[in-house]
Amino acid sequence: MTTHYLVLSALLFAIGGIGVLVRRNAIVVFMCVELMLNACNLAFVTFARQNGNIDGQVIAFFVMIVAAAEVVIGLAIIVTIFRTRRSASVDDASLLKY
């Protein structure tokens, strides 16, 4: 039964999505995005099993690499703004509006 894994993946994706929307700390927001990417990976691997080909498993590796690259860029940006503002809250960064 692969359905359970798909439900789990959808749940993880939703938790990540809600986290992005409600959390204030940029690092936590970013962790939630990573959770969403990992939910995608679970879905890919499950569908690979369901479809009987290994494309999904290969894609999961690609996604891991991309996620790693994203961490490098993301942490660099967040650390830079933290050093400037002494805060990683996304609510504080509100100079650009309207």
Binding site: L6, V20, A26, V33, A39, C40, A43, N51, I81, T84
Partner: peptide, 27 residues
């Protein structure tokens, strides 16, 4: 810097949607 953080967080968020859509179409 603020533009960079906003672009990054929202861009990463949207690419997660792109990826989940890809996963579902793969399914």
């Amino acid at each position: 810097q603020e533009a960079s953080v906003k672009y990054f967080l929202l861009g990463a968020f949207s690419s997660a949607f792109f990826l989940y859509g890809t996963a579902l179409l793969y399914g």
